[in-house]
Design a protein around this nucleic acid. Structure first.
Lengths: 187, 187
DNA sequence: TAGCTATGAATGAAAG
DNA sequence: CTTTCATTCATAGCTA
């Protein structure tokens, strides 16, 4: 009788990357392995996420500099880290949303699969899959005149929704056993 | 000492993925707990492996969707699962090969132990560690992309210690907690 | 119960 | 912006 299952899935019992919490913590590799890559502190991630959620998606060079400076308090960080963070975060959110959409549509066959599984996955990022309140750069600081051509953008996902151009392959809709034609020539 | 809450999902029942090929043997967590991780069915793995062996390494989004749709018959599966599967499979094969390589050059020991030890391991995946006949994407479908040469990079030189231009905020020099004014209005 | 291996998932960096 | 690569974390499922 192991009722150990009461412990549910331990999530991050390990030191997690955000070992932070304390003083320097910073970027030392959690596992102590040779780390040549930035390992964000939980605080740093929090701030970045917050900014992202506030609508910032593509920070300008200046913004990146400022953010980086601020975050350096929590540990070592470089501008490029911030740059990459936003780039990745944005790309992944979009990519994820795309997959979900498709997934959602294809879910017609499934019988009773609860979607609790995907819940956890998107609990962090896709918290707002509807708002779409992208502010896309946020230039509210006139300081320093205008740097280089930095203010334009403001696109509204125009090239995102590409009609999937329907397919004609037998989409198992009413068969018990799938034809399952997954040869490469089929894809 | 270690407060490593060893809760984790106790999994006593070995439902095994390859159980009777029936329809749903799929992904339910052994314990029935709501594990958030996809647990591929043996059929799904078989198909995926087959595709991989056929040369498919980096399926396009469309392909991923199709594969996912087809595999959904065997049990719950999402696009991201397929995506990750290929990503991991490819990476690991490469990693493995590289390790062997290094192993070979670095230490000329390489006695049979090596093989016997990993025999079981290689029996499944590295069935062919020599060919390298990667087909790399298999674009049998038009799949028009709208990417027009848009190259404007933003290079970050190591200017991490760049003086913070002109900030008036008290740069955490004597405080335990930073002022951290990272609201968008600040940037 | 503890350790190990295989592998799903995540994400920093880059390349394209 | 999109996609791929490299590493690492977390965990299911053995195995001893």
């Amino acid at each position: 009788m192991e009722e150990r299952m009461s412990g549910f899935c331990i999530t991050k019992a390990r030191n997690v990357r955000g070992s932070g919490g304390g003083g320097d913590s910073g970027n030392k590799c959690s596992t102590g392995a040779k780390c040549g890559r930035w390992n964000p502190t939980s605080e740093q991630v929090k701030v970045l996420t917050d900014l992202f959620r506030s609508g910032l998606r593509t920070p300008s060079t200046d913004q990146i500099q400022k953010i980086s400076s601020q975050l350096s308090f929590y540990g070592k960080i470089e501008s490029k880290n911030v740059f990459y963070w936003f780039q990745n975060h944005k790309a992944r959110e979009r990519q994820k949303r795309r997959r979900v959409s498709v997934d959602d549509k294809d879910m017609m066959i499934r019988r009773e699969d609860n979607l609790s599984s995907s819940a956890r996955y998107f609990s962090e990022i896709s918290q707002f899959t509807e708002p779409e309140r992208v502010i896309e750069t946020l230039q509210l600081f006139p300081l320093n005149s205008f740097s280089e051509g930095e203010s334009e953008k403001l696109i509204f996902q125009s090239n995102e929704c590409k009609e999937p151009t329907s397919f004609s392959y037998t989409c198992g809709t009413e068969m018990d056993h799938p034809p399952l034609d997954l040869r490469l020539s089929f894809l």
